[in-house]
């Protein structure tokens, strides 16, 4: 591909079937712009998507992509990146995919610190199955399966990530196009696992966590004196339940990616036509 990649090159010719007004439009646009802005093109980019409304993103974007099994997008992305460190890997999913069925993989993906970007479209609801509570739904959020609310505290994904040793934690808002793009771009540029929780409102099934709610309540850390390299300051913000924050909350500038730790530089797709030249040495080990 030529060096003049435009973000629309990352768009497929399939029209999204998301509900009009869905936050996922803005989330995806920001991802495409961030990819183009960081010098990537569709042929060197691999997008892995989970299951749910968010999972459809692989169809609407144009790149090498796999639309996976519910909750298991992160290990797929890690496998791609380990085998092909030359590729740009982006994993996208929703709050159900990432923090419920895939919560175990989320913690271990954070620990592993593979150099890839994880964008979670967090709408605090299960949209594709028409409105059940998600792991980030509020305690009193009434849905068809939780008529009196889940009666359990929502998962705090950023706290989970911080506890697991995250090297990059950010939060953005799908309708703040510029900031969202900037934040995803920083996650791509981060040398390690770049985690971005994106408030991506569901206009059909969630009448609590709405555009208006986020617009009114979000505090942009760029407007404060927050220092993302300060772990304690990040911890304080992440555990502060009284506010919703936007921006890069934590970044470990000393981050060493999994691939660097393990010296993974080879393109594993390239192999010889037969057994390796010294392969009989493998046999002789068993003398």
């Amino acid at each position: 591909m030529s060096s003049q990649v435009r973000f629309t090159d990352f768009k497929s010719d399939k029209q999204p079937t998301w509900c009009p007004g869905c936050g996922d439009f803005g989330t995806m646009n920001g991802m495409m712009k961030a990819l183009a802005e960081t010098g990537n093109d569709p042929d060197n980019t691999f997008v892995v998507a989970g299951i749910g409304c968010s999972g459809k993103i692989g169809t609407y974007m144009h790149s090498y992509a796999l639309h996976g099994v519910h909750g298991r997008a992160l290990p797929v992305g890690a496998g791609v990146k380990m085998a092909r460190p030359d590729l740009e890997v982006m994993v996208a999913g929703g709050d159900g995919d990432g923090y419920s069925i895939g919560a175990g993989h989320f913690v271990h993906a954070v620990r592993r610190n593979v150099d890839m970007t994880y964008v979670v479209m967090d709408n605090r609801i299960y949209g594709l199955t028409k409105g059940q509570a998600s792991p980030t739904s509020r305690e009193d959020f009434q849905t068809s399966t939780t008529p009196e609310g889940p009666k359990q505290p929502p998962v705090n994904p950023m706290a989970l990530a911080l506890a697991a040793g995250a090297t990059f934690i950010a939060q953005s808002f799908s309708s703040d196009a510029l900031r969202h793009q900037e934040i995803v771009q920083q996650a791509i540029e981060h040398d390690g696992f770049g985690f971005v929780n994106v408030f991506s409102p569901c206009v059909t099934f969630n009448d609590v966590d709405t555009y208006d709610y986020f617009r009114d309540s979000l505090v942009d850390l760029a407007d404060t004196d927050h220092d993302p390299t300060d772990f304690d300051a990040a911890k304080e913000k992440i555990l502060d339940a009284s506010k919703e924050y936007m921006g890069v909350i934590y970044q470990d500038e000393e981050s060493v990616s999994y691939e660097q730790q393990h010296g993974l530089t080879e393109n594993m797709a390239e192999i010889p036509d037969g057994a390796p030249e010294d392969a009989m040495d493998l046999v002789r080990e068993f003398y």
């Binding site: 691999f46 892995v48 090498y64 796999l66 996976g68 290990p75 797929v76 992305g77 890690a78 496998g79 791609v80 990146k81 380990m82 085998a83 092909r84 590729l87 393109n267 594993m268 797709a269």
Partner: peptide, 8 residues
Amino acid sequence: LGAARAGA
């Protein structure tokens, strides 16, 4: 599976 999709 990821590594296989990547060609390995």
